[in-house]
């Protein structure tokens, strides 16, 4: 009874907090730059940070199940490098893209297989290993070289628009809707949340937990492949050291988006809001020439506060309840 009260309370607050943050950041940005509220500027701001945002969806699923995937950024690098050498070797671009997505999906699938076959190992340790391994393979392939020579049209992905809307925004929206529907409207989403809430009870309820975990990690690989496509397209070349540290930013966004770090709770629309909170914050600070490093301090503090505050609130309510009982 008390438990439910607390959770509902803080959860409601969380959605409002994200909305409030978004409003504040927009006001801040608008006051910093008179040109901010111009469509072109906003859309270029959005384009600037969406490339890594694809990975937040599967990461949200994975963290809702109480797991974590630290290898996603290395997957981006490896799949991008594979695409790069494929093009350099003269393969047609569409085939290279398929290779890129295939490699990324395979990386995710391997993570999922190891994690479900060796349940004694935590997802953290497995994906830390594959993080080092996947990027290591990228280094073996390209050493300190860069691969380029992508066809002209490939830059369309990262830079162009369809009508007034940037292509990346369209793709992001499609995935956002897709993942929202999966989590909130399908039986798979319900099962993901069930696993996160109580893995054992889920097994006893006949849910194929291994299959769902495997799917989640595989989809994390696939979405890393999508990120890889957009990132490579933007840079028009690739190196083994691209996307270093992206995994942590992705995890930070998911946590800021209110996904319970112990699993079982979370909403995709909050995660999407968190993407925009971080992205627009970054953009705004860029407007006033503040280096991205300051942003990392803000992300760090947000990350800590976004889990600390609910905990403290819960403690407070518990104490209050206890006092009123005696």
């Amino acid at each position: 009874m008390i438990n439910s009260g607390i959770k509902k309370h803080s959860f409601l607050k969380w959605e409002w907090m994200l909305i409030l943050m978004l409003i504040l950041i927009n006001i801040m940005n608008a006051s910093l730059s008179p040109y901010y509220l111009n469509y072109f500027n906003i859309s270029s701001a959005v384009m600037a940070f969406l490339d890594k945002a694809f990975m937040v969806f599967p990461m949200a699923f994975i963290m809702m199940m109480g797991d974590i995937d630290i290898s996603v950024a290395s997957t981006v690098a490896l799949s991008s490098v594979i695409m790069g050498i494929a093009v350099q070797a003269g393969l047609p671009m569409p085939l290279a893209i398929v290779l890129c997505l295939g490699t990324a999906t395979l990386c995710g699938w391997i993570n999922g297989m190891i994690i479900t076959r060796f349940k004694e190992l935590s997802a953290a340790i497995v994906t830390i290993s594959t993080m080092i391994l996947y990027r290591g393979i990228a280094y073996i392939i390209l050493e300190d070289q860069a691969a380029s020579g992508f066809p002209e049209w490939f830059s369309f992905l990262g830079w162009e628009s369809i009508g007034p809307i940037p292509f990346i925004v369209i793709v992001f929206t499609v995935f956002a809707v897709l993942f929202w529907l999966i989590l909130h409207k399908t039986i798979w989403g319900r099962r993901i949340l069930a696993i996160g809430q109580n893995n054992t009870a889920s097994i006893y309820s006949g849910i194929n937990v291994d299959k769902i975990r495997l799917m989640a990690f595989t989809s994390a690989g696939f979405m890393a492949g999508i990120s890889s496509l957009f990132l490579t397209s933007k840079m028009a070349s690739t190196r083994p050291n691209i996307a270093v540290g992206y995994e942590l930013e992705v995890i930070a966004i998911v946590v800021l988006g209110g996904v319970s770090t112990s699993g079982g709770r979370g909403k995709i629309h909050n995660v999407i809001m968190a993407v925009f909170v971080i992205g627009l914050l970054k953009y705004g600070l860029g407007l006033i020439n503040i280096h991205s490093q300051l942003l990392s301090i803000i992300i760090g503090i947000l990350l800590i506060l976004s889990t600390l505050l609910p905990n403290l609130g819960e403690d407070y309510l518990k104490k209050k309840k206890l006092r009123s009982n005696t």
């Binding site: 438990n3 439910s4 959770k7 319900r190 069930a194 809430q197 109580n198 054992t200 009870a201 889920s202 006893y204 309820s205 849910i207 079982g264 709770r265």
Partner: peptide, 15 residues
């Protein structure tokens, strides 16, 4: 092993 305590009765029953 049997319940998801944080969920409603209905969602538990249909799981």
């Amino acid at each position: 092993q049997g319940l998801i305590l944080d969920w409603g009765i209905d969602k538990n029953i249909t799981l």
